[in-house]
């Protein structure tokens, strides 16, 4: 029966003659365990990460909505182009004399004419 001293115990393993045996066993156990696993998933306590994630999911859209509301409140009701005072106007406001044409026009700069204008004007 057992002539070489080794005992072929593997013959007792149903998976030895039927390769799919243990896969079917596993599938049966997992199918029967399904309701208990689902119950455990439903009743398990939340982790810190999951609590933070749930807050995050709530806070991000709320913040976006709040930011949009604040922005609409802070924006002026109506903006008219040209309402601000131009720098050039501010500089000449209240000055009676005519501005120096040579100084005001860059491509007509002439040192001599400029000095004459200064000296003459002074």
């Amino acid at each position: 029966m057992v002539d070489n001293g080794s005992i072929p115990l593997e013959l007792l393993d149903p998976g030895n003659s039927d390769p799919g045996h243990w896969a079917r066993f596993q599938a049966r156990v997992m199918a029967l365990a399904g309701p208990e696993l689902a119950r455990r998933r439903a009743t398990r306590p939340l982790t810190v990460g999951e609590v933070l994630a749930s807050w995050w999911r709530l806070l991000v859209p709320a913040s976006v909505v709040a930011a949009a509301a604040m922005a609409s409140l802070l924006m002026p009701a109506e903006t008219t182009p040209g309402a601000g005072i131009a720098i050039e106007e501010a500089l000449v406001a209240g000055v009676d004399d005519e501005p120096l044409p040579a100084v005001l026009v860059a491509d007509q700069v002439d040192e001599v004419a400029f000095l004459v204008a200064i000296e003459g004007g002074g």
Partner: peptide, 9 residues
């Protein structure tokens, strides 16, 4: 598995 992880079980 205690928290219902089917893969772990």
């Amino acid at each position: 598995a205690r928290s219902g992880d089917g893969d772990a079980f």
